[in-house]
């Protein structure tokens, strides 16, 4: 009975059964990383000196505090990236249904992109992505 069910599932290209190889690969990747970290921990020699345990900063002795608040410019770039990332994700369902949606769907997407384009022009005009100021 289970074999029949599996056959019915495997004939459907939309079935989540096809994510089984992805899951297996993920499992093996995690297992491999865990195994290697454990094995190197067990087999490798461990000589703990003060020099070895200090943070590696390209060979220079570390100075100052690492926990300094960083510039807000990074955050601005990141949040703009997220917004345009979401815009691109909305294109996937449209691209799959491109033929069947016709002109109506095209106009909807053009309006969507138009709003984003307004925002993009605003960002460029304001110089928000300019690093030096």
């Amino acid at each position: 009975m289970h074999i029949y069910l599996l056959q019915a599932v495997t004939q459907n290209p939309d079935s989540s059964y096809w994510y089984l190889p992805v899951g297996l690969q993920l499992l093996f990747a995690i297992a491999f990383v865990g195994l290697m970290m454990g094995v190197t921990h067990l087999l490798g020699p461990s000589r703990k000196t003060a020099d070895k345990l200090s943070n590696f900063e390209s060979g220079i002795e570390s100075v100052g505090n690492a926990r300094q608040p960083m510039a807000v410019k990074y955050f601005l770039v990141a949040i703009l990236f997220v917004l345009f990332d979401v815009e691109v994700i909305f294109f996937y369902p449209y691209a799959v249904n491109f033929k069947s949606l016709g002109w109506e769907g095209f106009l909807a997407v053009m309006m969507f992109v138009g709003f984003f384009l307004c925002g993009f022009i605003y960002i460029i005009k304001k110089g928000a992505l300019k690093w030096e100021d």
């Binding site: 807000v72 601005l76 969507f112 928000a128």
Partner: peptide, 16 residues
């Protein structure tokens, strides 16, 4: 998309 536009403008206004 209007929500995204307002988020963009807000981020630029606050960040810049």
């Amino acid at each position: 998309s209007i929500l995204f536009l307002s988020a963009m403008v807000g981020a630029v206004v606050i960040g810049k």
